[in-house]
Design a binder for these strands. Structure first.
Lengths: 203, 203
DNA sequence: CTTATATTAACCGATACGGTTAATATTGGT
DNA sequence: ACCAATATTAACCGTATCGGTTAATATAAG
């Protein structure tokens, strides 16, 4: 990792790492070509190696960067500072939308990286990893106020179902190849309101 | 396409095309290697070319085969012969589970193939394509008995949400790399019962 | 105009690709 | 046991692409 990268204009930095997020999110580590990243980012391949040393260096930077920014966004949106389930869900998802505005393919990259099996990076990645989703799931079930929920349906199933739906929704967006954060934000809000209406008791 | 392929033992046929479904579902058309398919299927690469001519031939066979089998399963499960939404949903999903039993990666392949952009196959694929999901969506909204649904929430949102959740659920299963159709079938039934309870009126 | 820095075109050896071919197993009839 | 037909593959071919380097060029700074 060459520190000169950070002296580039921010817009150029983002263009480069977004290109990398995109290519690495659409291909396995091994089959994601550096040349494709360079082209997508509008720079030469040589410059990519100049900044990040080698392919592994770039990948690891992307991974650490993704985790840092995710944690930062969760903090900024005070995601964990409520015990209202739907409020927390909304903050969590809106924080992800804000990230998506700057880094449209970061979310897809993180998922793919987490399941990456290539031995060259698997170990390096899991060292720097903290299981965000499992941690948040724990918080929901231990600290959350669940008295507003319908009593006749299983809370865990509700929780699973909502996160399946979010994943499926995002998958559809990625498949369409057109990421419009404002649109996503709006549709996410509609979905959350929908869930609140459906899963909580009237009154 | 060489007709001798069909004279192979059925188990061997399935092993080969399942290997192909797997590799093509995990890589783009261009980056899915024939050698990987051969290895995964336990045969030589030369034999693969002997049966299917070339890469494109294999891919197109997989595509046509997937559509045929999907249609056949929908028919066998009498999916469209009911106007109860949840019954239809259940039949539709269970028919997919039955396919998954023999061809675990066919569903993922179909999705990826549908969105494939490679010019060499894009045209050929869309010729042989009938939009199953859009057609079924139309049927739901035109012929379905919706009087049992809760009146206070939008039907289209319910429909979208359910299909997001199914996609997300399947995505999770594929990412875990362990496809157990019996388990999936059971969990799908739980989800459908869950939705029925949540989205229909009491009484 | 000169030096330092940013950037890239061209290149390199290695590998992986789609596809072919010639040789080897395997089968089935006699 | 033999042979012919068929099934299957190892080895090969030309080409494209890969990660990574280098030497040269463009740009900026003093």
């Amino acid at each position: 990792m060459n520190d000169k990268f950070f002296k580039l204009p921010l817009e150029k930095q983002q263009r480069i790492i977004n290109a990398a997020y995109k290519v690495f999110s659409q291909n396995s580590y091994k089959k994601a070509p550096m040349s494709e990243i360079a082209e997508e980012g509008g720079i030469s391949k040589a410059l990519l190696f100049h900044y990040f040393g080698n392919k592994k260096g770039l990948y690891l930077y992307l991974w650490i960067n993704a985790m840092e920014m995710t944690r930062k966004a969760v903090r900024e949106y005070k995601t964990l500072e409520t015990n209202d389930f739907f409020e927390m869900l909304k903050r969590s998802l809106l924080s992800k939308c804000s990230l998506m505005r700057d880094y449209p393919h970061m979310y897809a990259f993180s998922l793919r990286a987490y399941y990456e099996t290539d031995s060259e990076i698997k170990n390096a990645i899991q060292d720097n990893y903290s299981d965000v989703s499992k941690a948040s799931e724990k918080i929901v079930f231990e600290k959350m106020d669940t008295s507003w929920f319908r009593q006749d349906i299983d809370l865990k199933t509700i929780y699973d179902e909502i996160f399946y739906a979010i994943d499926g929704y995002m998958l559809k967006k990625y498949r369409s190849n057109i990421i419009v954060p404002n649109e996503i934000e709006q549709e996410i809000i509609v979905l959350i309101d929908f869930w609140k209406k459906v899963y909580t008791q009237e009154g």
